[in-house]
Design a protein around this nucleic acid. Structure first.
Lengths: 198, 198
DNA sequence: GTCTATATTGTGATAGAC
DNA sequence: GTCTATCACAATATAGAC
């Protein structure tokens, strides 16, 4: 059903995915605005025009990547609520998601042009960020401002520490490092005992 | 001594600093590659050509900004070693530095084009990152990999949580929020007691 | 699906008047 | 110090052959 029969070994869906993978790498390395169509087609091994068969614009590639990211995030959020997952499990999956989608995570979390584009999009359709949902699951019942800061801090560790470590290790994260990141994130998330009696 | 007498109210040094301030804002908002000379001159209220009296290129503006950042970082490192500062004080000053130089911090810490440019620069002159010095001061005597991860995690919190909070609050950080960020960073930095006996 | 052009606009940068 | 005008080039994107 999925194959039409007229495509060669590298069929349309395949090439499209290869383009997205390359775009994700390059956006993470040089930023969205700093990456040209020629950069992408060069690494792919084709001409610029070939890309326009698969995507109507450079922005269309970014939109597709952000869609992938939102889908992965939505899966995690859904699982966190349905199971439900404890903070340790949520943060652990976030570390794994960062490893598996490091280009995407770096682009969404760092690239200023992408962040401003997403803010603009969020303003247009009135929706808040997907991160907010994960945060509110992490903070649980205690919806205080302090709890929000702790949750955000734990997320900052899972994202930034994981990205920093795998950049020095060809995309791989050892079990020991993962455990250390997770432990630090959990400590950041935990409310200090002294605050209970105040 | 510093004034030559032929300049109007907004003298050269003043205009240069205004340009840098605007460039820092815009680089943080839209990224270095995503910001055009026209963007900067537009916010300044002049034409593009006027900028080239003060800077020889767009890259020259970035170089000047990175120089400012490195100088501020060097000041902190020097103070941390000379005084010497405890981790709590170092992290506290990093939060304050992030608030005072938020545009710079966002650009250096996030913008992929700037990060890759700095990596290339570091490879050329053989020097490591300035961050490494702060990290080694933070980890102190324990130079284990786990201690490095904890230090990096604490830094991730001071940077990311501070930037996130002041973005929602017109550049200001309340005392309470600052204390909460600092506490989370210190928890992330602390070695778990159980690890001592292992 | 991919190619060789080419159209078109954006961008960094310069020349020279004021 | 800033302007108008312009250049050279890089970038996105399209047209049409294969």
């Amino acid at each position: 059903m999925a194959r039409t029969g007229t495509q060669s070994a590298a069929d349309a869906g395949d090439t499209r995915q290869r383009i997205l993978a390359i775009a994700s790498e390059l956006f993470a390395e040089k930023g969205y605005a700093g990456t040209s169509i020629a950069d992408i087609s060069g690494r792919l091994g084709t001409t610029k025009a070939a890309l326009y068969y698969h995507f109507s614009s450079k922005g269309d590639m970014l939109t597709a990547l952000l869609g992938e990211f939102l889908a992965l995030s939505a899966d995690l959020v859904e699982e966190a609520i349905a199971t439900p997952l404890a903070p340790e499990q949520i943060l652990g999956r976030l570390i794994d998601l960062t490893v598996d989608s490091r280009g995407l995570m770096a682009t969404v979390g760092r690239d200023p042009s992408v962040r401003s584009a997403m803010r603009a999009e969020a303003r247009r359709n009135g929706s808040g960020k997907q991160v907010d949902v994960i945060v509110s699951v992490l903070v649980g019942a205690d919806q205080s401002r302090a709890a929000l800061i702790r949750a955000h801090s734990a997320l900052a560790i899972t994202k930034e520490s994981t990205l920093a470590l795998i950049e020095d290790n060809q995309g791989a994260l050892t079990e020991e490092d993962r455990a250390e990141i997770l432990a630090a994130a959990l400590r950041a998330l935990s409310a200090p005992a002294a605050a209970m009696s105040a």
